[in-house]
Amino acid sequence: MSRRLKTVFAAVLVALAGTLAAQPANATATHGAKPTVVLVHGAWADASGWNGVIARLTSDGYPVLAPANPLRGLASDVAYLNSLLATVDGPVVLVGHSYGGSVVTNAAVADPDVKALVYVSAVIPDQGESVFDLSTKYAGSKIGDNTIKTVPLASGDADVYVKTENFADIFSADLPRSTSALLAATQRPITYGALTEPSGTPAWKTIPSWALIPRDDQVIPLQAQRFMTARAKSRTVEVSGAHAILISKPGKVTELIETAARATN
C-alpha cells in the first residue's frame, strides 16, 4: 500500500471512530426494541385473566404490564392508567378487554407513546357514548336485570356483579365449568356509574387499532362489536368463542397483539 493510500485509510478510520464514539451507549440496544404491551382488563375480571397472553408475550421478548383496573368510574380509571403509562419508557401497545376498551380509548389520547390500540371483545366508544349505550345498541346481550345483582355503596353508586348461576353462560361459556365457577367467585364488580359515564375524545381516531371479536359473545353483542370496529377502522379478526376469549384463546389474542406491535416499528 502506498504512503498516500495509508494516509487516506488512516483518516477514514479516525473519522469512523469519531462517529461511533458519538453514538449513545444504548443505541444498538434501543434500535428495534420491542414496545411495552399494557393489558387492561374489564368488568367482572381481574388482571390474572391475561396470564396466558402474558406468558406468550414475555416468551417472545415483549415487556408486559397488566395493572389492576379499579373499575370505579371511567374518568378515575383513565387517570389511574395514565399514571401508570407515565412510568413506561418508549413505545406502548395498549390493549383493552371489554370495559377496558373504553379505558384505553380515553387514556391513549394523553400519551404520545401509545402507538397502537388492540381491542379484545371490547367496547370502542366515540365521544359521549357509554358502555351501557353500546352494549344495548343491538339485541343479543344477556346482561340484564335478571342476570346481575347490585350492591349499594355509601357514595350513592352501586357495584354490579354477574349472578353466579349466570356467569358461565354469559361470560365464559367456552371454558370448563370448574374454571367458570372460580371466575364467578372471584369476579371484581364494576360500578353502575362506570358503565353509564360518557366517554371522551376517542384515541382510535388518531391511533391505528386492531380488534378481536368472539362470535359467541353474550356480553357485547356481535353486531355491536362489528359496528364499533368498522367505525374505528380497526384491523379485525373474528374467532369462535365467548366473552372471556383472552382466557380461552390466549394464542389468538397474543397473535393479534404481536401483529399490532410489529406495525409500530
Score class of each variant (00 low, 15 high):
T191D: 10
R215G: 09
A27W: 15
A66N: 04
V93Q: 07
V253D: 00
G18K: 07
W44Y: 08
L175F: 11
L84Q: 10
I148C: 04
Q218S: 10
L74S: 03
G49C: 11
I245Y: 07
S121C: 11
E238S: 08
K163G: 03
A47Y: 07
G128C: 07
A116R: 13
T30R: 13
K137S: 15
P67S: 08
E238D: 12
P189H: 11
P125N: 10
A263K: 04
A260I: 07
T87C: 01
R177L: 15
K149I: 04
L134R: 03
I207H: 03
Y138M: 01
I54V: 15
I257L: 06
S180V: 03
N166Y: 09
D216W: 04
V239W: 07
A66W: 06
V103L: 01
T191N: 10
S121E: 06
A79Y: 01
K34L: 12
F132P: 00
I143Q: 04
N26V: 09
P24S: 03
A181C: 05
F171M: 15
A230S: 15
G96R: 05
A244D: 14
A17K: 00
T147F: 06
V40E: 05
I170Q: 02
T196V: 15
I247M: 12
G128Y: 11
S98R: 08
A33E: 13
A261V: 11
A224D: 03
F167D: 02
T264C: 08
L84R: 10
S141I: 08
T236K: 02
V114Q: 02
D113A: 15
A122Y: 05
A75P: 00
I124K: 04
V120P: 01
A86I: 02
H97K: 07
K249M: 12
Y192P: 00
K149E: 14
V109R: 05
L246G: 00
A261G: 04
V162W: 06
D111Q: 13
S48I: 10
T201A: 06
Y138Q: 08
M1S: 14
Q225T: 02
K137V: 13
T259V: 11
S59D: 14
Q187P: 04
D111E: 12
K115G: 07
R235F: 09
I245W: 07
Y62L: 05
E129K: 09
D217N: 12
T259D: 10
A25G: 07
A184L: 08
S121I: 01
D89M: 02
S83Q: 15
T36Q: 11
S172Q: 03
L81C: 04
R3L: 14
V118Q: 05
A168V: 13
V120S: 02
G144R: 13
T136A: 05
V78F: 03
P24F: 13
I245S: 05
T229H: 01
S135D: 02
A21G: 04
A108Y: 04
A181Y: 10
P198T: 11
R231F: 09
F171Y: 10
A260Y: 10
H97A: 09
G156H: 09
D157I: 13
A107Y: 02
I124P: 01
D133Y: 06
A173C: 02
R177N: 12
S76W: 03
T236H: 06
A263E: 14
V219R: 01
S2W: 05
A263W: 09
Q127E: 15
K249R: 15
Q23K: 12
S178R: 04
A107E: 01
R231A: 14
Q225S: 02
Y161M: 09
A154L: 14
